Amino acid sequence: MARRFADIAAPDPDADWSLPGWLYTDPEYHAVELARVLRPSWQIVCHQNDVADPGDFHTIDYLGESVIVVRGDDRRIRAFANVCRHRAMRLVEGPRGCARKFVCPYHAWTYETDGRLSGVPMRRDYPALQLEEHGLAPVEIELWHGFVFVRLEGDGPSVAAMMAPYDAQIAPYRIEQMHALAPVRLRARAVNWKNVGDNYSDNLHIPVAHDGLTRLFGKSYAIEAHPYVDKMSGQIVDRPSDNPWERFYQTHLPPVDHLPAANQRLWLYFKLWPNMAFDLYADQIDFMQWLPLSPTTSVLREMTFALPDDRRAMTLVRYANWRINRVVNAEDTWLIERVQQGMASHSYTAGPIGRSEVCLRSFARKIRERIPEARLHRPPAPGWSRR
C-alpha cells in the first residue's frame, strides 16, 4: 500500500491521537463546530449545466439556512438566501426549478433573478422601505471546474486553492462539460457528520471491510494528504472478479479517448475539507457531502455527473458501477453506525492513530486548530463555550 505523508509546518502535540469520542455526541461542542468549521466552509450545490438557462435554480438546505443558486437573465450565476426580506418567508420549495421572477407566496413581494426587489404590493404602506436596500441577501459563490459552491461566511481559501495540488490530475476529465445523470439524493444517517468523513478517508479498513474493492484494486490502493484535500486511489486489476457486477465492469469498461492511459482503469477519490468528497471514474463522477442535522445525525447529499456518451457499453458499465458502490455504501453504513454507538460509550476517550493514517491525522489537526477544546480526551464542564 503506497502512502504519502502530509507536510506539516509545526508539530502537533496530539498528532498520535484520534479525535476523542465526546466530539461525536456532545451538543455544546456541536454548536461550536457548526460555527467555526461548517458555516465558514464551502458547500457544493450543483453543476453549472444544472442551471443552464436564465431562471434555472437549485437549492441547498443546511445548518438552518436555505440557499438558492440561480442563473440570471444576464446569464451570470448568483447565490442568495432563500428568504424574503419582508417576513422571512421561504421563496421557493424543492431542490430545483425555473422562475423568471421569485414571488413570495406570503405577501407577493417580487425579486428579479439578480436579487433585486422589484415589486411590493401596497408599496406606499411601507414608509421605511427602500427597494434598492431590500434585495435578496447575497451568498458567496465560487465556480470550480463547472461545479457551483457556496459559503455562508468566512474568508478561508477558495475551492480552487484547496484543490490546486491536484488540478492537473483532474483537468483531463473535462468535468466542466458534464451533466447530471440523476436528481440529487438525500440519505439520512444516524451518525455524527465527522464519522462519515473519517470513514471515507480511512485506508486501513479497506482490506478488512470491503471485499469488493479489495478484489477490484488488489494491492494498488493508495492514500495521501494535502492541507485541505485527501486523495485515495486504486487501479482496477485485470484478474476477473468472482462477483458478476465487478467482473462486468472490469471486462466491459469502454475506452475513454480524452483520458490518459493511466486513468482508463483508475478509481480516484478526493475528500475536500471539511465534509465533501468526489469520486472520479473513467465513466462518471460522484459527489457526496455529509451535512450535520444534530450531534448524532446527518444527511448524505449525493449527485452523479457524466459526459454525454450514448454507447450501450458505457450505459451498462455505469449501472455496474452503481451496483458495486451500493454494496460499498451499505458496508460503510453498517460500520459508521456502530462506530457512532461506540463513541457514546464512557469507556472510550481517544484512540491511538497510526503514522500511516495520514488523512485522519490531517483532519484531526485542522479540527484541533479551530477548536482547542477538541484536544481534551474528556469533555470540559458544561458552559465551557461561553467562558
Results as ranks from 00 to 15, higher is better:
V120S: 04
M303V: 04
E246R: 02
V299L: 10
A262C: 14
V92G: 03
A81G: 02
V120Q: 04
D230C: 06
Q235W: 11
A31N: 06
V148M: 01
V139M: 09
I324L: 08
E337S: 06
Y173N: 06
G135D: 14
Y173E: 07
A313L: 11
R312M: 14
T214I: 01
G156F: 02
A164S: 15
H252F: 06
S233W: 05
S356R: 03
V328T: 14
V103S: 02
A282E: 02
I170A: 02
F5L: 07
A137D: 13
W17A: 07
E93G: 06
E93N: 08
F305P: 00
D56I: 00
A262E: 15
D16W: 03
E93W: 00
P227A: 10
A15W: 01
P95S: 12
L213D: 06
R75K: 14
G354R: 03
Q284N: 09
V67H: 01
Q48V: 13
M232G: 12
R326V: 12
R318L: 14
L23P: 01
N321H: 15
Q264H: 07
N329L: 10
T251Y: 05
D202N: 12
D61R: 11
A52V: 05
I175S: 10
I236A: 04
H210T: 14
H205Y: 05
E373A: 15
R90V: 07
V37R: 00
E357N: 08
C84F: 00
L19S: 04
V208N: 11
P227Q: 05
D242P: 01
L216S: 05
Y269M: 14
W290S: 14
D61F: 02
P240S: 13
L143P: 00
I285T: 07
R355Y: 11
R386F: 11
A108I: 01
P382T: 09
N325S: 09
A344I: 02
N321C: 11
G197L: 07
F57I: 05
T296A: 07
D74H: 03
L316V: 05
R4D: 15
V103G: 02
G197S: 08
M162L: 07
L291T: 04
D56R: 00
G115V: 01
R151L: 03
N329K: 08
M232Y: 03
F57Y: 13
R323Y: 06
V208K: 08
P379D: 06
R185W: 08
N82Y: 01
D198M: 04
N329Q: 14
G97T: 12
